[in-house]
Simulated assay, not measured.
Amino acid sequence: MKPFDYQHPTDAAAAVRSVAGVPGAVFLGGGTNLVDHLKLGLVEPDLVVGVTDLLPAAIEELGGGGLRIGAGVSNSELAADPRVREWFPVLSQALLSGASGQLRNMATTGGNPLQRTRCVYFQDVTTPCNKREPGTGCSAIGGWTRNHAILGASEHCIAVHPSDMAVAMSALDAQVRVLGPGGERTIPFVDLHRLPADTPERDTVLEHGELITAIDLPAQSIARRSAYRKVRDRASYAFALVSVAAALEVQDGVITDARIAFGGVAHAPWRAYRAEETLRGAAASEESYRAAADAELVDARPAEGLDGGNAFKIPLLRRTLAATLRDLAREDA
């Protein structure tokens, strides 16, 4: 591990100034992702700035049933909060499906969406990787592709985003509050993450030195009837092959509104706008669920690889979406 300097400022604004002033500086929150990367040699910062106890660590109610979640709130605290479980069950379920209890106790609301891909080639410093070293190539293309993207990939990167929480946040129209060198700004959660295009090394739209301070969940009646379904290779402590975060409103057998996001299929949490539009006004039926999946997956491009590729994700995602919507429609019946 390369030696680095460490600072622990007195407040978040000072932490932002410290990181912004050093090109090779990084923030350290719960450390569940960064510490691994330091050990693997994926990152070699010149300066690490601790922010764990500098960020808001409370869940505050906003008007009408919304919530403001401080970036310092742990994943365990957030999943267990009675308001989250009642008002935004999809978020609680997503959090509990990720990592382990010990990691959820350390991981934070501000850090979880910023975790980097678990692509095996990204984590192996002996292999070319455009995300780790731009311009070197993508070893995943034509390699082991089972866990890789079917939506939004590029010729430079086919990695997927690993966060479960981020998929739920995307479906819930969350807003990300950010503090940077130029002051505060708010970013819609669906705009936080980037698709790879020709700059896969950039995971998000955050500028160097910008720090997430809170995430707001707007009040939405539809969110009370929401769920998260995750398909993985083993029952726990595994990343999603595919996942679905969904919320549904049904009246007299007709879908009046829907919110849907996918995980495990793209470089970013994938908000399924086409599926939502297909469902609105349609009957709550298997035919409608299949049509919604087909509309969203029309541009899906599975990757071929040494392991047979990941074309299986397309029918798997269709079935996962249908099962999730079926259960939610039954709740509304």
Rank of each mutant, 00 (worst) to 15 (best):
P3W: 10
D5P: 02
A12I: 13
S18G: 00
S18Q: 14
A20R: 08
V26F: 04
T32K: 06
D36F: 04
L42P: 08
V43P: 07
V43S: 09
V48S: 03
T52E: 13
A58P: 00
I59T: 01
L62C: 13
G65K: 01
R68G: 02
L78C: 11
A94L: 01
G98T: 07
G98S: 15
R104P: 02
R104G: 02
A107I: 04
Q123H: 12
P128K: 09
N130S: 12
N147I: 00
H148D: 09
I150F: 10
L151F: 05
G152C: 08
I158Q: 05
H161W: 09
V167K: 04
A168V: 07
M169R: 01
L179D: 00
P181T: 05
G182K: 14
G182Q: 14
R185W: 08
F189Q: 00
R202E: 07
E207G: 14
G209D: 04
L211R: 00
K230T: 03
D233S: 11
R234A: 03
S236N: 09
F239S: 00
A240D: 03
L241Q: 02
L241F: 09
Q251S: 12
D252V: 06
I255D: 02
A258M: 05
A258V: 03
G263Q: 06
A272C: 12
T278L: 00
A282Y: 06
A283S: 14
S285W: 06
L306W: 06
N310W: 11
L316P: 00
R319W: 01
T320N: 01
D327L: 13
A329P: 09
A329S: 15
A329D: 08
A333E: 13
